[in-house]
Design a protein around this nucleic acid. Sequence first.
DNA 1: GTAAAACCTCAAGTCAACTTGAGGTCAAGA
DNA 2: TCTTGACCTCAAGTTGACTTGAGGTTTTAC
Lengths: 152, 152
Amino acid sequence: MDISEIAKQTGVPASTLRFYEEKGLIKSVGRSGLRRVFAPSALERLALIALGRAAGFSLDEIGKMFAPDGKPRIDRRVLSDKAAELDATIRRLGAVRDSLKHAAVCPAPSHMECPTFRRLLAIAAPGAVDRKVGRTSSKKPGVMAVSKARRR
Amino acid sequence: MDISEIAKQTGVPASTLRFYEEKGLIKSVGRSGLRRVFAPSALERLALIALGRAAGFSLDEIGKMFAPDGKPRIDRRVLSDKAAELDATIRRLGAVRDSLKHAAVCPAPSHMECPTFRRLLAIAAPGAVDRKVGRTSSKKPGVMAVSKARRR
DNA sequence: GTAAAACCTCAAGTCAACTTGAGGTCAAGA
DNA sequence: TCTTGACCTCAAGTTGACTTGAGGTTTTAC
């Protein structure tokens, strides 16, 4: 299969496939003239890569999950940890979604005056609301900074 | 309140607060000498910003959600749409998590040989598995590319 | 036989959201 | 007084994952 065939079937652009090959994430089985030739197994490999990306692994991390022989050799512990992390992310996103939905219908003049909204916000953006001020205050900062997820 | 007080209470670094001010996302009420002075309402504003970020809005989008007077003026439609988008993301992440969990325990020699894994993968990374090959084939590419989420 | 399409390499550019660094100001404590 | 530390500005750098572009070759279509 040539690069455009892989691109067509996976939706991954040819430029990305070349980039992945350069990074060692996929391999072509040879060349036909200049052109790369891929085995169909590249499709599976790309599916695994897509899964890894969706789970929040970096390309470098994903690269290390394949043994030099090409077979996936994955640390089960790492997977479980990531699954747990995803669980937390999912819960937080649920609160975010609920906050959004609530804000979309809540008639309160200012959302911050709405107890429901504040409660959701406390989960969605921990540390952002209701911290007591000063008073020889607690050193621990609230983490308003958005934690982890991924874009582009 | 000075910038370090805000930073301490929200966990957002001072450099980020200056950056946000420059972008028009937050405002200081004045200066004490060189130093910015913030009203406590900045904390609420930052909570809203954190929510927006968590929901996947860009800083520019968030900026447009505040009227010039400072009050949030939010398009309910936009919120509902984003909530729906989050719903989809949450479902997909659930499948990703399940794939990971399964891969962590599945004894199959190659994960791709495991039907359960393949089924989950089909949801986690749509288009990645089981597409029929060629045959005057369908033009639509599978989108193996990771869609949306956020990191950093 | 010739031109357009499809591929190639390699270097450089892009994007968002910040961070870092150099160089400077200012108030408070020893 | 002096020096430390918290703050300031503005420009430039960082990160990860790609994309784009220039310049070149090959394959396919007429």
